[in-house]
Write a protein that binds this DNA or RNA. Structure first.
Ligand SMILES: [Mn+2]
Ligand SMILES: [Mn+2]
Ligand SMILES: [Zn+2]
Ligand SMILES: [Zn+2]
Lengths: 141, 141
DNA sequence: GCGATTATTTGGAATTGTTCCAATTCCAAG
DNA sequence: CTTGGAATTGGAACAATTCCAAATAATCGC
């Protein structure tokens, strides 16, 4: 919410990775924070253009990749549709509404996450889990 | 395992959808059953060619799509890498080994599946869940 | 069985999302 | 200021998949 804090944490995370806080990276990130509807790279591109009309699609891809590397943003995939980007850092699953195409964040309680990890037999060392629902969501918001 | 049974269930499922049991569909399906290593369409294509040297890649894609529609096969996606195909019909998660690229089936007990579905707030009606692990697997087989 | 109708396969072109690349442009340090 | 590396840019290239129109094959009514 707070743009100063957001921008600070961005600058910090980038610095931690030895990267610079460029206007392109800042605007791409702020666009993701502003409207958390899991936009595609093309959608991010369109939104960023409003502020930086000369930015290129390649740069948007670069910035998104950078933000994912810095773990400020998650890349979300449904089947083979374009990758979507999510700045929600809490552990959460995704719900993909087949009718509307909308994507919802579903908070994952630690207990559930723990139980899911229990299904792994000995010898499987998971660094991450992804949980994705597909179905229909009743409009709430 | 049993080719007669497999072929019968294939013929049955196809008939249920008003589709024919063609040699291409049969061989594509048998190739998936024979080596359950989650091959890509290209890999299936290569394996099927041994039996049907004149089959086309488009037909392999068509057959795989048909088998997925008939619910005899699951399409499995990791990030944006090529779709993989899995004839295991039991409820299971996938474990993607980042080093080797191999994909493992992880059986999902009904209790875990139930608990995972519990995380959905009212208004979310899921028709399917996908659980995907990424990490490192110690070689067992 | 025979021709008509429909389903399926085929090869190649097209599409889509993404990555690559070489040429600038930008910056920060000396 | 210079200068070397970092970042951006536009366009070409790429990979996976889908589309398409023509050829083949199976099925149906007779
Ligand atoms: Mn959809
Ligand atoms: Mn991998
Ligand atoms: Zn999310
Ligand atoms: Zn599987």
């Amino acid at each position: 919410m707070n743009p100063i804090l957001a921008s600070d944490s961005l600058t910090q995370r980038l610095a931690d990775s030895g990267l610079r806080a460029t206007p392109q990276r800042e605007v791409v990130y702020s666009v993701l924070l502003r409207k958390r509807d899991h936009p595609t790279a093309e959608e991010v591109f369109a939104r960023v253009k409003a502020e930086l009309p000369t930015i290129s699609l390649a740069t948007v891809y670069n910035c998104l990749e950078t933000l994912v590397q810095c773990e400020l943003v998650r890349a979300v995939n449904f089947e083979r549709s374009p990758t979507r980007y999510c700045p929600n850092l809490r552990p959460h699953a995704h719900f993909h509404d087949e009718q509307t195409g909308r994507t919802y964040d579903i908070d994952l309680p630690p207990a559930v996450l723990a139980e899911v990890n229990q299904v792994l037999p000995a010898g499987f060392d998971a660094s991450s889990v992804e949980i994705t629902f597909r179905g229909q969501a009743r409009a709430t918001s």
